[in-house]
Amino acid sequence: MAGVLPLQGMTVVSLEHAVALPFATRHLAEYGARVIKIERLGSGDFARAYDDAVRGEMSAHFSWLNRSKESFAVDVKVPSGLAALERLVAGADVVAQNLSPGAAARLGLDAATLTARYPRMVAVDLSGYGPTGPYAGRRAYDMLVQAESGLVSVTGTPEHMAKAGFAAADVAAGTYAAQAILVALLRRERTGEGAALALTMLDAITEWNGYAVQLAEHTGRGPVRAGVGHASIAPYEAFTTADGDSVLIGVQNDREWARLAAGVLGRPDLAEDPEFATNRERVRNRTRTDAIVAEVVGALPTAAVTAGLDEAGIAYGRVNEMADVLAHPQLAARDRWIEIDSPVGPVRQLRPVVEFPDTPPRLEPVPALGEHTEKILTELGYSPDQLAGLRADGAI
Rank of each mutant, 00 (worst) to 15 (best):
G128C: 07
L387N: 03
A184L: 03
Q330W: 02
W64N: 10
N98G: 12
G308I: 01
T155H: 06
S232R: 13
G194Y: 06
N279S: 10
S68T: 07
A105L: 06
I396T: 13
E321I: 00
G317N: 05
F72Y: 15
L260I: 02
L5E: 01
G345P: 02
G381S: 05
T306G: 09
T240K: 08
Y236Q: 02
R190H: 15
R348T: 15
A2H: 12
R120H: 13
A238T: 01
A327Y: 00
A92T: 10
G250T: 11
H17R: 14
V247Q: 02
R48T: 05
A2R: 13
V89M: 03
D93N: 12
V19S: 04
S63A: 15
P384E: 02
F276D: 01
D45A: 12
T155F: 08
P22L: 07
A198N: 14
L185D: 04
L88I: 02
H27L: 11
P357T: 13
Y118P: 05
T200Q: 00
G394Q: 09
S43M: 08
A277E: 09
G298T: 05
D125N: 15
E371P: 01
V366L: 08
A299S: 15
E272T: 13
S153C: 04
G317I: 00
R139E: 06
K69L: 02
M143N: 02
L326T: 01
A24Y: 03
A169N: 08
V122Q: 01
V4P: 04
V152R: 07
A104F: 07
A18C: 06
H27Y: 06
E193A: 14
D290M: 04
V145L: 06
P22M: 07
K69C: 01
S100F: 09
E237W: 02
H372F: 00
Q146I: 01
G308S: 06
Y176F: 15
E374A: 05
G227M: 00
E339I: 04
R286P: 11
R106C: 06
A73P: 06
A169F: 10
L109M: 12
T287N: 08
A111T: 01
E70P: 10
G108D: 01
R87Q: 15
R282P: 13
A168L: 15
F72R: 12
G192N: 07
L28A: 07
R34E: 14
G108Y: 09
T11Q: 13
